[in-house]
Amino acid sequence: MNAMATEPDPHLSMVRQVTPHTPEGCEQCLRLGSPWGHLRPCLTCGHVGCRDSSPLKHARAHAHVEQHPIAEPVEPVEPVEPGETWRWCYAREAMA
């Protein structure tokens, strides 16, 4: 059995109470005038980046450059079932 799948993600200790810097869109895409898809706010600093299906993948780039690996989806763009939440860890490439 994969230990990473059963053990809590160690990067969750980096999650903070943050306010997204630009809830209206991806920070870099807004500056560049580039389109984006779904958004992923960083749960360490509040940076808002676009997810991997977007042309420039700014959330992933931020996670690796700043070493802030945990992000979550922005609602209501990606609604989840009532009571359900999820986070993505770019370092582990898995749900956190």
Rank of each mutant, 00 (worst) to 15 (best):
P69Y: 14
R87S: 13
H38L: 11
C45R: 00
G33A: 11
G49N: 03
N2D: 15
V80W: 11
C45I: 02
A94N: 08
C50G: 06
L32C: 12
L39H: 01
W36L: 05
D52T: 08
A59W: 04
R16T: 01
G33V: 03
M4R: 13
R87H: 08
E24A: 10
C26Y: 03
M95E: 10
E27I: 00
Q17E: 07
I70Q: 05
L12F: 04
P79G: 08
C42S: 13
C50M: 07
A71Y: 06
T19L: 14
D9Q: 07
E7P: 00
V77C: 08
A63W: 03
P41D: 11
A61E: 15
T22N: 02
R51A: 08
G46E: 09
G49C: 08
P55E: 11
A3Y: 13
P10H: 10
P73H: 03
A94D: 14
P76L: 02
P20Q: 05
P69T: 07
Y90K: 02
C26I: 04
R31N: 12
S34T: 09
G49E: 00
E72L: 01
V15W: 04
R87I: 02
S34P: 01
A94C: 10
E66M: 13
S34G: 02
E66S: 12
L30V: 12
V80K: 10
P82H: 11
P23H: 07
L30I: 15
L30R: 11
H64P: 02
C45M: 02
H21T: 13
